[in-house]
Amino acid sequence: MTELTNELVLRMYRTMYTIRKFEETVSERAGMAMIPGFMIHLYVGQEAVATGVCAALREDDYMVSTHRGHGHLIAKGAAPDRMMAELQGKETGYCRGRGGSMHITSVEVGGLGANGIVGAGLVIAPGAALSAKLRGTDQVTVCFFGDGASNQGTFHEGLNLASLWKLPVVFVCENNGYGFSTPQDKHQPIDRISKRAASYDMPGITVDGNDVLEVYLAACWAVERARKGEGPTLIEAVTLRWHGHYEDDDDEYRSAEEKAEFPKHCPIERLERDCIERGWASTSQLERIRSEVDKEIEKACEFADESPEPSPDEDPALIFSGGDR
């Protein structure tokens, strides 16, 4: 599985580019007030993390996401059209317009929720892993979270529980250097978050989160450990958030010089270079992928625009399932 075939590399390229194109389109649409809400947290710059991690997963593996969840969900296999519809509050969206950006998820692809509460997923993930273990499946649960979230009590509680019970979880910390306006050195006294794994007696590694291949290889190793019953792993992927914390954020706490550096670390361009250098693909192949994705996102927008609004009479089955055993 860890073998880097042409097909796999191009699939990852397509995923990263899909995320980028989707997010840039969301940003545009948010600017035109086509997307309700003001807390739209985009994944631009971080594409390699979700892509590399999810490429190491099976379709039936679980994925616990965050407030910055669009990229995670695309990487796990969700369809951009139903995602765009959700972001526009339409009935055809994955959550029927009830969730929106911060709660977008698709259970059919293994998503267990984006989250508006920072750190909440860190204790939900061990539960999904416990469930897989008790049901006798070998499903693995991946849990994404940020550097800011690594200070919540739930980080410590979740890692402890997962390690104590040897649960099949892969904790993936996306260290983009900021929790909202607060730089990492102002929110925690350590530089490498992976160090914290030692407290819970699990392996902790730091990878370049702008290098999808490095992320992928680390994820394969952690997923395999989890699947074999060897317990959880903490992967810290160091990356960059290119946009403001959310689309309405003026991002004044980061200097123009700092922001000008971001594109130099573009994970997509990096994979393009790798592809050419290592002969995985030609520029025209990559170009073809990009234009296919462009069309797909265009169609996703049309689908979202043409979809109906939900009916204002709330469906009671969304509050209680009404079922029983």
């Binding site: 309700p36 809400g37 509050g89 339409k90 959550c95 317009g97 009830r98 969730g99 929106g100 950006s101 709660h103 609004e309 939900p310 204002p312 009479d313 709330e314 969304l318 509050i319």
Partner: peptide, 16 residues
């Protein structure tokens, strides 16, 4: 407000 979690969709939010 209606006895329900607050929805995202502007139409549903207004109804809630």
């Amino acid at each position: 407000s209606r006895d329900q979690p607050i929805p995202f969709s502007p139409v549903l939010e207004a109804a809630c």
